[in-house]
Amino acid sequence: MKTTHVVIGVLACAAGVQPAIAKEGDFLVRGRAILVAPTESSGPVTPGFPGSEVGVSNSVMPEVDFTYMLTDNVGAELILATTKHDAQGRGTLSGFDELASTWVLPPTLTLQYHFAPEGKVRPYVGAGVNYTIFYSTKASDALVTAIGATDVKMDDSFGYTLQAGVDIDLNEKMFLNLDVKYIDMDTTARLRTGAATNTARISIDPIVAGVGIGFRF
């Protein structure tokens, strides 16, 4: 009997939660913890390392995003985060757990469609563009030991982004957010060792999964 009363009480509390209701003119601010998981592929590091490939490590970091609701259903979201990744040897370079490291700054702008804007559970989908800046890129100690002092540069990337997520109300102003994105991200890495230059074309194409808390203003 007591269990029944508890269940009824929980359901009554849930029913009493007022939806945050994202509507035209609102700002939504979210803080997320994200996992950036590259689905990478690459060509060989040429001309010096035939038969080689380059992998890219996962990264976990915080992220902040801002959404402005253009209408009750349509929002524009700017996503800001920076993550650190290692370039790892594959194929004939598989002896190198780390070839180089880089920081990645990928500001991303998406246009979203929010379903059920007056509901307590509000799924959305989005698509947009991404510009990725690679910075503080450097060769690993193991690579320098093997081939000598090496300068590493990675070209910036411009591509598309696909997104899906859901906001789940916690109270009138605060909501839980679950979000996943696919980012088209390609770069050319250049390794200069003395007079020699080796290059590799890398498709990073990460899936970015995040969970966090949002607020409506």
Rank of each mutant, 00 (worst) to 15 (best):
M1Q: 13
T4C: 05
H5S: 15
V7W: 08
I8F: 00
C13M: 12
A14Y: 00
A15W: 02
V17N: 10
I21M: 14
I21F: 08
I21N: 12
I21E: 05
K23L: 08
K23S: 15
E24G: 03
G25N: 09
L28H: 04
V29F: 15
V29W: 08
R30N: 15
G31S: 12
G31P: 13
R32Q: 07
A33G: 06
L35D: 10
V36L: 06
V36F: 12
A37Y: 07
T39H: 04
S42M: 01
G43R: 11
P47E: 10
G48R: 09
P50G: 11
G51N: 04
G51D: 03
S52R: 13
E53A: 15
S57M: 03
S59G: 14
S59R: 01
V60D: 06
P62W: 06
P62H: 10
P62Y: 00
E63Y: 01
D65F: 00
Y68I: 05
Y68M: 01
L70G: 10
L70E: 03
T71I: 00
T71A: 11
N73S: 07
N73Y: 09
N73T: 02
N73C: 04
V74H: 12
E77Y: 08
L80M: 13
A81L: 10
K84F: 07
H85K: 10
Q88V: 11
G91Y: 03
G95M: 04
F96S: 12
F96I: 02
L99Q: 03
S101V: 01
S101E: 14
L105P: 02
P106W: 05
T108K: 00
L109W: 07
L109K: 10
T110P: 07
Q112N: 07
Q112S: 05
Y113C: 09
H114Y: 05
A116C: 01
V121Q: 02
V121N: 04
V121R: 03
P123K: 02
G126A: 13
G126W: 07
G126Y: 02
A127W: 03
N130D: 03
T132Y: 06
T132H: 12
F134Y: 12
F134M: 09
Y135L: 10
Y135V: 04
S136V: 02
T137D: 15
D141Q: 12
A142N: 13
V144Y: 00
V144A: 15
A146V: 09
G148M: 14
G148Y: 00
A149H: 00
A149K: 11
A149E: 11
M154Q: 07
M154P: 06
S157T: 03
F158W: 06
G159W: 10
T161F: 10
Q163A: 11
A164P: 00
A164F: 00
G165V: 05
G165I: 02
G165W: 07
D167T: 15
D169L: 01
D169Q: 12
D169Y: 05
L170D: 11
N171P: 03
M174L: 14
L176N: 06
L176E: 10
L176T: 11
D179H: 04
K181I: 15
M185N: 09
A189R: 01
R190C: 02
L191H: 09
T193G: 14
G194K: 04
G194F: 08
T199S: 14
T199P: 01
A200K: 05
R201D: 13
I204V: 15
D205R: 04
P206F: 08
V211M: 14
I213T: 05
F215Y: 15
F217A: 02
F217Q: 03
F217M: 14
